[in-house]
Amino acid sequence: MQITGNTVFIPGATSGLGLALALALRERGNTVIVGGRRTELLEKIAAENPGVETVRIDTADPASVEAASKDVLARFPSVNVLITMAGIMRVEDWHRPESFLESAESVVTTNVLGPIRLIAAFVEHLQAQPDATIMTVSSGLAFTPLTITPSYNASKAAIHMLSESLRLQLADTSVKVVELEPPAVRSDLLPGHKENEQAMPLDEFITEVVELIETQPDAREIQVERVKFLRYGEARGDYDQVVAAINGH
């Protein structure tokens, strides 16, 4: 992915990592369209950031994905980058089904079906562009599980393997598949997570991500230094120790 000159659609970018990345890409000379569920947030983003475009989309709703994708492609036919940022994280206790089933279904709907629906809506259009990118967003927890978030871990592992598979299938097209793999970053993904001193500061994460995109335009995975502890535990042979470390054992 080139760092500039793109038209980028980022659903799930009204706060946190998504919004920060959207604004950073805008500063690098890209046209950026931010998508989200809450109209008032979209209006606030547009007012505070002239030049950032917005569209309402709920990636958990197939009809909303279809309508929003048609709107984006009609208004911005030069879209050549899709970043499937929308995601949720829930703390779950799997000892009792009544305490986790509804949560797990919501996580899978948003984190797995959402990106699948988005890619389905844009993949034909992207193949018609001379240079296009689908950026998926997994997590360090796709490779090392956090005990309290089973569905989130599983959903991000699914995104990793989906990314690997799509990269193979789309190798004969103009579409690159890039997987962004965040570590724990200070955001609102979980209550109180924004104040978590063990998590990476958001501005540092975005700065490093943008630098990696710029210096490694052909990268298949965008990995800030901090995520490699989680990403490569099994390859290093210290997987059990990494699992124990992030779960406080």
Rank of each mutant, 00 (worst) to 15 (best):
V224C: 01
W94E: 06
L118K: 08
K176W: 04
E40C: 02
M135T: 11
V32T: 13
R90S: 04
H95W: 07
E102A: 08
T31W: 04
V242W: 12
S69C: 09
V178Q: 05
K70C: 05
A63W: 10
V242H: 12
D58G: 05
L73M: 02
L166I: 03
T144E: 07
R220G: 13
L190R: 15
A132V: 06
P201A: 09
F205Y: 10
N111H: 10
S163V: 08
A120I: 03
Q127N: 15
E53C: 08
R186I: 03
I57L: 01
S139W: 01
V185G: 04
G36I: 12
T84A: 14
E53D: 13
G114V: 04
T14C: 03
E221P: 03
L42A: 00
I88H: 00
H125D: 04
F9G: 09
T149G: 05
K44P: 06
A142G: 07
G233T: 06
V178R: 13
R220N: 06
A199V: 10
G87L: 01
E48I: 04
P62E: 00
T215C: 01
T207W: 06
T109M: 02
A235M: 14
A235Y: 11
T109Y: 08
N247V: 12
F229I: 07
G5I: 02
Q169Y: 13
L146N: 10
L113T: 14
V224Y: 04
A219F: 00
A24Q: 01
W94C: 06
D58Q: 07
Q216V: 02
A154I: 09
E92R: 05
R90M: 00
P115I: 07
G51E: 11
S103H: 01
A20S: 15
S165Q: 14
K70M: 08
E124Y: 06
S187E: 04
A68T: 05
V210M: 04
V32S: 10
G140C: 08
A154F: 04
K176M: 07
P201D: 08
P11Q: 11
S165W: 09
L101D: 06
L170N: 03
R75P: 11
L168T: 14
I88Y: 02
F100V: 01
N80Q: 05
N6R: 15
